[in-house]
Design a protein around this nucleic acid. Sequence first.
DNA 1: GTGGTCTAGACCACG
DNA 2: GTGGTCTAGACCACA
Lengths: 128, 128, 128, 128
Amino acid sequence: MIRIDTNSSKPLEEQIAGALRQTLAQGEFEPGDELPSVRQLAGDLGVHFNTVARAYRRLADEGLIIVRRGRSAVIRPQRRTATRVTKSTLQEQLSEAVATGLLGGLSRDDIVQTFKEALAGFGERKKS
Amino acid sequence: MIRIDTNSSKPLEEQIAGALRQTLAQGEFEPGDELPSVRQLAGDLGVHFNTVARAYRRLADEGLIIVRRGRSAVIRPQRRTATRVTKSTLQEQLSEAVATGLLGGLSRDDIVQTFKEALAGFGERKKS
Amino acid sequence: MIRIDTNSSKPLEEQIAGALRQTLAQGEFEPGDELPSVRQLAGDLGVHFNTVARAYRRLADEGLIIVRRGRSAVIRPQRRTATRVTKSTLQEQLSEAVATGLLGGLSRDDIVQTFKEALAGFGERKKS
Amino acid sequence: MIRIDTNSSKPLEEQIAGALRQTLAQGEFEPGDELPSVRQLAGDLGVHFNTVARAYRRLADEGLIIVRRGRSAVIRPQRRTATRVTKSTLQEQLSEAVATGLLGGLSRDDIVQTFKEALAGFGERKKS
DNA sequence: GTGGTCTAGACCACG
DNA sequence: GTGGTCTAGACCACA
């Protein structure tokens, strides 16, 4: 389902949360669907269950999923409208990305191009 | 020569290495040129010299410069900068950012708009 | 008789125990009266009987009711409800809430207003 | 400085974060002041440093403090204005508090009285 | 010295 | 079975 890179300097917890976030954004899950259990996913990825649990908790704090003791984590039904927070988070992430590109020697056009590809990766898919 | 932001959550070491990498990529130095000494640069930036030393070390590990005890660091002969890594990092960061925006309820246009702002935030620097 | 909210993050067990505690505090039962059986109440609420059983167990631990195998749970003779604990818990929760508001930049009036709304949200139930 | 109760069912991490939040709300620290180090506070409280670290991280996520590797955690300078999130958090906390009180058998007047006391606990103190 | 991350595993709460 | 919390300690990154 998702892949992680234990050699990356990026914390596993963030990698997992990020990957799940992307999966959710692509609409692969319907609201109400259950995510794999913490221990299940941890086993699949070969990491400690605590690491996955923290990733889940983070997504729950962001309002993307609902986790409750004794039950599987489920995708949250409604879409939030707290766009103010989202917007500032977005700004920060995009700025960081642009900085990465420029510092790495990419041209502005390269970056724009990559951005377009990324956006296209999340096709306007309808709720089939 | 370069600027750093002590309020950023990005490690100083990385900021310095990144800025130097960019400077090198812009061809401001010829192979064989000497970089400022660790203590010199540390003094200019107002940071601990260990931090600068580690940034130099990192660049040396990447094969961009050569550092030897008792000598100034010098630019290495040539070497295509590792843009491949940069590119994939960029892709990943942008994908995550787009996912953040979509999950937060922003429209694609909102995201494009925010991206443009982010890009504009890095001014159209000329290769002087 | 009592209502529970399966969407709340508050454990079902606690919701049930709390509701029963409140019912008892309102004097709806005389000492010696029988409570509904665990399975009966579980069926009415649509939850697992283990959950109800644990709520009863908790009340029994608090000395409010008496449960014995093969008999219905009965109300215990008397006992001032432990309002002292409730009061200090309340104080703590309200202090935390006020701190949240102030740190978030809200005015004291905003907080008072929000408090009033919260209180109003629990309707003016009469002790029928 | 702060007290915790290891017998409480409330997670230590939350107790610590909550206590610090209150301390901050009371203006005992000036922006820029340093908090005790993670290991220092952990030692004082008799808990594992990870527990304190998580509490600090939480406060940092909320924008109340700034934590950076290699440096002490410091109080964040500016006051955020993201009142939308704050407001909804406040609502939830106050509702929960009111529920606690009512379920515990307190009268509405008792609750209002306790709220007033809590609010008064955060005197309108000026930046002396 | 600071904080950050991860593993490991105990123990608990919930259904 | 689920997730939650805590301890313990290794190891890393940064200043």
